[in-house]
Each structure stands twice: as C-alpha cells, then as structure tokens.
Design a protein around this nucleic acid. Structure first.
Lengths: 152, 152
DNA sequence: ACAAAGTCTATTAAAACAATAGGATAAGTC
DNA sequence: GACTTATCCTATTGTTTTAATAGACTTTGT
C-alpha cells in the first residue's frame, strides 16, 4: 500500500512538474492546491530535496522546484525514496536485498519466485513512468473528458 | 510489503498442499517444520479456516487440511484474506474499492492511472498462481539444483 | 532591520503488526 | 464418563510505523 506521504509527494511533484522552468513554488501554495497538511508537506519536500529530486531557494521569492526535467524523474524513484523498496519481500529486492533469516534455500522458495515476478512487474511500470508521462496522461484524460461532455 | 502473517500462511499452505489427501496435519507440526511461532500460526490457520480456505478436525487425530484441491487455491486469494486488497490505493481496488476523499476527479488522477496498472499486473500474477503451481515450481527448482550439483 | 521563506529536531497520537496467554470446546480412547 | 488431545476463541501486550504537529533556527531579498 502506498503511504500518504508518497501520495502527497507525487501530487506535489506533479504540481512542480507543471510549473517546471517558471521559478520556485511555495510550500504553502502546493499544500493549499492539493489539500496537504502544510507542515507534513514541508518534511516531505525536504526529504525529496536531500535525495536530489528537488531543489529549493530560501527567503523571499524562494520555494521549491524540480532538480531535473519532468521526463527524468520516475515514479519508481520517488516511491523508493519515501516508501522504501518496491519488492513485497526483502529477498527479492534489487535495491535493498536482504536474505530471509528463516529461509533454508532461496533457490527453491516458491513464495520468493512468485514475489519476484510481482516485484519485476511493479518496477517495470513505476520505473518507466516519469512525471512527464503523468502530465501527458492527465492532459489526455482532461481532453477526453471534455470531448465526452461535448458529445452529450 | 507482504506481512509476516501472510508469509507464514503461504508456508503453511504449501505444507498442507504437499500433504493434501493424506489426512489432517497438526498445527505444531507445521509450526516446527516452518519455524513459525506456534500460537501465532494458530490464529492464522483459524482465520484461513473461517474464510473457507482450510478445514479442520478437533481432538485426537485432528489437525488442518485444505478445503479445496491445491490447484483451486490462489496466492491472490490468500493475500487478500490476510493482508487486504492487492491495490496500492483503495481507489484502484476491485475487491475493496473506496473513493479517495481528497480526489477532485478520479478520471484525471494520474497517480490513480499508474497505480491501477500496478494493481492489474499484481493481480494477474497472484490470481493465476495456485498452491499447485507453487509445488510444481518447487519441484522444478529442486530437480534443477540436483542436476546442477551433479554436473560439477 | 525586517519580513519571508525554507531547515531542522523533537514530540506525539493513532494505527498496524507480531506475538503471547489462557481458558473454552469438541472429539476420540479407555 | 473421565482423560487426553487437539482446535477454538478472546483478550492483552509490546513494538514499530505512520501521520501529523510544534517551535526554534537559518538564509535571503528589500
């Protein structure tokens, strides 16, 4: 299950992707637009900054902005930074592998085999989807919706 | 992340699938074979029984056994029963759908679109994998391993 | 100097997770 | 019908994670 933290982060990043190249955006603005508790969002953005996903400027005229173009920031990266590994089990994680203490033989563990498939499928989707992809899909959906209401 | 509860459950179910048709198996036996805390396992098996996945017999000569053939019990079903919906977000769950309180428009939410893909991929894998499939894969791995050591 | 912003550390409340404890109930055995 | 073996059921506990709040600190522009 995706934590609220990560959900908030993705919402904030989508806002920042929309504003990319137009200067810093205030925490308060993002919090208000997306109905995220202001102080909580502060912590989240700070963490994203420390991980190099965001950059910031202090003082008047300051705020947050993406550290890279929207096409270069993947959902998978964001989820891993805030929620940890995508893998359902540590023993199938590529980025944070850990042997199961009680596992006698990893090679013959069926649970592991199945969960490895799940990890791969999840990573495939999340690592190949960028903020830019999300913006594009939002736009498509908005246009599709308009076209639909228009046709009624 | 898969909970220990569900991991224990799957291990227990694999044992019971191996013994399918050969009468009841004791909780204690399963606990010992798989190094699962005895009392914790009790709760888990009870829950699986109440969900119709297992059946049991009390008293001497009693124990637990599968309620259906191993080929008819899917990993997805077990995970849903113990860990809840597979979906990373309630708003993309088929079995436990819940609208996001703060979502203005579900149709244009990019986070939702991406997580829907993840849910679908996960369900595809877990719902199409049965206990029988897992047994088969274990056997294949064991044989493969033997062949490997033999060739050295 | 002052105001506006992000930065940092600590704390707290609530929920979920993992496990333990102990008596209740049912079924077989002698 | 007493005894033993097993599951059944409810409650409780300790730990960790999640979500959020609070407040003082630092930097920057005017």
């Amino acid at each position: 299950m995706l934590s609220k933290k990560t959900k908030y982060a993705l919402k904030a990043l989508i806002v920042l992707a929309k504003e990319y190249g137009q200067g810093p955006v205030l925490i308060s603005d993002i919090a208000q637009r997306e109905e995220i508790p202001r102080k909580f969002l502060e912590l989240i953005l700070l963490e994203l900054k420390n991980q190099g996903i965001l950059q910031s400027k202090k003082g008047k005229g300051g705020g947050y902005f993406l550290g890279h173009p929207p096409a270069q920031i993947s959902v998978g990266h964001v989820v891993r930074v805030l929620d940890g590994p995508l893998a359902p089990l540590p023993c199938v994680s590529k980025t944070a592998y850990m042997r199961c203490r009680e596992c006698r033989d990893e090679r013959t563990c069926a649970i592991r085999m199945v969960m490895k498939e799940v990890r791969e499928a999840t990573a495939q989707i999340l690592d190949s989807t960028s903020l830019a992809d999300m913006l594009r899909r939002i736009e498509l959906a908005v246009n599709g919706k308009e076209a639909l209401s228009f046709s009624i």
